[in-house]
Design a protein around this nucleic acid. Structure first.
Lengths: 119, 119
DNA sequence: CTGCATCCTGTTGGATACTG
DNA sequence: CAGTATCCAACAGGATGCAG
């Protein structure tokens, strides 16, 4: 069960599942939308999601080739939960940012505690 | 927002938040309960959660020292979502296991695709 | 008991080049 | 377009020793 949680609680997997909610997307559509993901990580992530039965991969034998990725029913059942997590993050990011600032001010007045601050 | 998602979508953070639901726990209680976590990772995880305002750390100046960790209101608001994720995982682990077996049988009939199988 | 500091290793993941 | 293969750097994370 921990191995499943690890898989699902992966930042790229989360984003991919969140994005495939509306409609199937092609490889490069995902690549462009998920700013910062490398081709390699997108491939790896999609393979894992496919293996776990969360995403279906459909190859169109055309030239140039075309591959669609879409959520399976299992994937869609997970999407609701994922979405709740994303929504929570959106709603509370101000509080978290404030908590970080307060924490850093209390404990390390003149030094950043992590590189997160630079993002 | 991605940095926040990365933080909470961490396997150790998820487990810690899930465990602190019932009552405050001491450092070594958490350590014993979360099988496989090292002292270092528990410390790091708790510091991050504290910095993000999700967990409150309380030091009792006794001998020997005692430190309690408990969810803040913000942490508790996240717990519901986390719990939904954990519940989903419990409910669907059979399907995922089956999907993995089917995937491996189709694509790599005689070879494991990852070390997950050994867990 | 609850940590922090240090060292060291394995894995993750980015960059690049090549293929169907 | 949609990948695979390779190399390599960065970082996560374990082990150990020490401190309050």
């Amino acid at each position: 069960m921990r191995q499943i949680l690890d898989r699902i609680a992966d930042k790229w997997s989360l984003l991919v599942i969140a994005l495939l909610d509306e409609r199937p997307l092609r490889f490069n559509e995902l690549r462009r939308t998920i700013d910062g993901i490398s081709q390699r990580m997108l491939t790896v992530t999609l393979r894992q999601l496919e293996r776990d039965g969360l995403v279906r991969r459909t190859v169109f034998p055309t030239v140039p080739p075309r591959v669609d990725y879409e959520l399976t029913p299992l994937g869609m059942s997970l999407h609701a939960t994922i979405q709740a997590l994303v929504t929570w993050t959106e709603e509370h990011q101000q509080e978290i940012a404030a908590a970080r600032t307060a924490y850093d001010a209390d404990t390390r007045p003149s030094q950043a505690v992590s590189a997160d601050d630079a993002l």
